[in-house]
Design a binder for these strands. Structure first.
Lengths: 212, 212
DNA sequence: TAGATTGTTAATCGATTAACAATC
DNA sequence: TAGATTGTTAATCGATTAACAATC
């Protein structure tokens, strides 16, 4: 359904369209042309029209795009109208921050449980969640129809935990562990690698320094 | 110096080379061919050779690459041998997690101070840092040769804080605020947008669901 | 020396941009 | 209707892959 093999380059621009359209909406702007949008979002008008037309003809000749309708449609394309049940594994600093992250709601993700392997953490509370023992991940995931796991553990244990998650039925992983997980091809992994981002910043700073 | 206009695609692969080479090093592997590396890292051998040759001829015909030397060279290319002085702005959940993030050391980034605008936070301690009042950002940054800021605040105040940072001398921003900051062209901004990452995961999950 | 593997040029592929007929 | 702007095809640009001579 839907798909006609959209490239990742296009997919990664969709959230940005969604964000800018939400902003326009909050400023009560009702219509926008690809040219106007191009000026605020920084893509070419041509690229905007190409991108959107991968998913349908949302615009109208001579008029442009209806902001509200386009925002809603992109939300649907992104699957934001769907509900996913998630667990968070690794209740360290980052795990705690993500447990409190308000963005999950907009994406339709609901955290059903938080796990940690450290006995000192088990039983403690983060928000409404009592931290559970990582030994119980498999039974919890299979008994609670969990779709997605948020992985915030050090790289050493990460592959083993991912294996347990996948074998218990998880179909997607938001991976903060600095490792390329090996999973079956049908399982989706979205990586957030802070080190890679930081190193990229370091490279760009160095180049900028050397320019002088 | 150095540069001959390297594309971002290449730059973003460098940290991954660095990480895999560190791993090989920890396993006492001393040499590797582009073909072998291609099998573990998942890029083509051709791409690996192209990428590396942007920066110099690090290999040797008939032998391959010396793991230790290549790792060291890529570290230098990434600027990991340089020291940068940083401040962290926004001591909420994410800011606290990043204050404790061990990865800064490897990148040569040192956090010199942590700021927050919330009066209830000011004076509290995170690790060794006593949280300072955001009102003091400008004087601190200009008096302490700060190069980089880590921005972990909500999107509403983010542009104003970025303006203050830049006018006080910050040349790079690791930006976690979900907004595209406007800064002078010589200032480097590296974005980590969790919402965009999460929405991408949502899209891929939806597509995967609909495949069935 | 013979075999292996790089560095580098050429070919291919995919993504972006330009152009314009269709149409609101 | 005339003007504006889309949807879409064609042209361009850039990145990846293939090929192979150079060389260790």
């Amino acid at each position: 359904m839907g798909n006609k093999n959209i490239s990742m380059a296009v997919i990664r621009r969709l959230p940005k369209y969604y964000r800018y359209l939400a902003d326009l909406l909050s400023r009560d702007i009702q219509r926008i042309s690809s040219k106007e949008l191009s000026e605020i979002i920084g893509f070419t008008a041509s690229q905007i029209r190409q991108d959107l037309n991968n998913f349908g003809g949302f615009g109208q000749q001579g008029y442009g795009y209806n902001v509200e309708a386009l925002h809603r449609e992109i939300g649907k394309i992104l699957g934001l109208d769907r509900k996913y049940r998630a667990v968070l594994v690794g209740a360290g600093n980052l795990g705690q921050a993500l447990t409190n992250y308000s963005g999950f709601k907009n994406a339709g993700f609901n955290i059903e449980a938080v796990f940690d392997a450290n006995p000192k953490m088990i039983g403690l509370k983060i928000r409404d969640y009592e931290i559970m023992d990582s030994d119980n991940i498999e039974s919890f995931v299979s008994n609670n129809d969990i779709d997605i796991a948020i992985l915030c553990i050090p790289k050493n244990g990460a592959q083993a935990v991912a294996d347990k998650l996948v074998s218990s039925g998880v179909r997607g992983i938001w991976n903060f562990a600095p490792i390329d997980l090996e999973v079956p091809s049908e399982v989706i992994v979205e990586n957030v690698n802070l080190t890679e981002s930081l190193f990229t910043l370091s490279y760009l700073m160095k180049e900028s320094d050397d320019q002088l």
